[in-house]
Design a protein around this nucleic acid. Sequence first.
DNA 1: TCATAATGTGTAACCGGTTACATATCAATG
DNA 2: CATTGATATGTAACCGGTTACACATTATGA
Lengths: 327, 327
Amino acid sequence: MATIKQVAKRANVSVATVSRVMNNNGYVSAEAREAVERAIADLDYAPNRVARSLFTKTSGLIGLIMPDITNPFFPQLARAIEDVANQHGYQVVLCNTDEQLAKEQTYLVALQTMHVDGLIITTNHSDNPNYEKLELPMVALDRIVKSGIDAVISDGYEGGRLAAETLLACGATKLAQIGGPEQLQTVKRRTDGFLDVAGDRLVGMTHSSFTFKEAVTASKHLFDAYWPFDGVFAANDVIAAAVLQEAVRRNVRVPEDLQVIGYDGIELGEMTSPPLTTIAQPIYEMGRRATERLLDLIEKREIETKEILLPVTLTERQTTKRKGQDT
Amino acid sequence: MATIKQVAKRANVSVATVSRVMNNNGYVSAEAREAVERAIADLDYAPNRVARSLFTKTSGLIGLIMPDITNPFFPQLARAIEDVANQHGYQVVLCNTDEQLAKEQTYLVALQTMHVDGLIITTNHSDNPNYEKLELPMVALDRIVKSGIDAVISDGYEGGRLAAETLLACGATKLAQIGGPEQLQTVKRRTDGFLDVAGDRLVGMTHSSFTFKEAVTASKHLFDAYWPFDGVFAANDVIAAAVLQEAVRRNVRVPEDLQVIGYDGIELGEMTSPPLTTIAQPIYEMGRRATERLLDLIEKREIETKEILLPVTLTERQTTKRKGQDT
DNA sequence: TCATAATGTGTAACCGGTTACATATCAATG
DNA sequence: CATTGATATGTAACCGGTTACACATTATGA
């Protein structure tokens, strides 16, 4: 790799001039510019970002802290973030914390010492004090933070309502629900919305983490404890897939005997049989907005903290009947 | 963030001494060491990795180049890579190239200028000349590269054979296949293995990319063009899910009328109805091995290039019958 | 006891960029 | 014509680490 000094030498100018043409600032004569450009091309020169970083204290790196990229909700988020970051010349550093405070802490110092320019956090320790004392631009994604940190989330309460309304509109009368991890506020809102609409038509309810395995257990439990019911709202699509599987196992026909609505709108929902009706979050959009917001913060285009709330939509596939159609 | 100079001052030693205790090299007296350690603790000091990087020309960064993290095969790989990297103090930079040469090229220079220590490539441009002129440790994952680059792959040919043998052993007599993208050598081997065992029992064959949408089209085509058949091998689990869905749509019972075997062993296979029998690659293990190999290369523990071939296994779920059991 | 090796520590150069500052030329202005 | 501001360029300091080298002190061995 060539250095700026070699370029300067070849172009018969000083390193300062080379730096000026690269960064397009200061005064540079046309001849000098041309000579430098030719030298850069000849040597196939690209400036050393580490050296630049040391002086400018910016790295072009964004830290992405997630619980587990293996959870199918996150890859799309990661993809959106990476896309936007890349379009603006940033790279993203992937960190899986498994929700463990210790891992999170380790990453935080690693990211800080490598001078990342900002952080996107999709992790759920709602009150990790480490974040606040970190003086870094950051935005929380799909997660609600107490104070001082920007957040991009979708409207979980409305999503929960929409799920219940849809089930009811499609003729369900006995509703059940499998909620998500209770400490996740964004997830809890879905439950709240659902329950507010379901009212006393709710005949059963249980909880599950977002791993398929636990979802299977929870589904069995739901059937064992509360059957019969004719409409289920699952806190995410993975759980919904487990419900679908359990229904098949019990020879319960979907959607004829039981309607199911999931949450998230991940691709998995298209792949189940029958394809899953779900409340879709604008996942890519959420990632995009979060990253744009972060870049605004990094490049000082915005100051005041705010929360961006995105709408959810119903994706009707085949685990619900047509609306208005009765049993 | 404190600097080494501040630590030195507080400990009443020179920066050299501080550096020595941090890196645990050179001579340091017990008192000096203790003073420095106290100063480090007091100031909550962590060395600036950028500065260190500039001098040592190592960054503790690994570039991970994948087609698309959104494809459900990759997150598990990414997870394994990140786990191992992290255990050894490295961070990983995520790059999605969509198989576009231009994007790949952009990333390559970005990664190079930020002095990543190594590269893991799961991308399929089998002969991108950019890699060879890059003087960086790298290993190809789930991808075969001409020469000079280490590779970690699983035994696709054997996997294909195993799929065919299983289908046959479970009573299938008329086999069909949906192959993957033809330019992917690792995927083509699956087809080769399958065909070699299937022989003239193959009644139909088509191809598909790994997107679900295309897989649905390919599945319809397979049924339209070649039905009846009683055993299908899909080049990956996503395609198998599409086949399953199409079977339901046509009222073909699985596994009674039609047995299906997928490939990869991703979690999706557990979530379909019925759960998918599949040829499982040791995905996490592949990521782990690739990363360990890369670290060996980076830390100069290994020199000669080699290809690591990992075995695949049959994961029997419910889209195949019990072996030996006839129709 | 003296030469030599081992131990301990600081100074300064270096990594490869960016930029403040000094200096020089030239055109415009009154 | 002298003054001023715009243009152009180079020198050197700086970012925060690492380490070669110089130097001093202490231990070891003959």
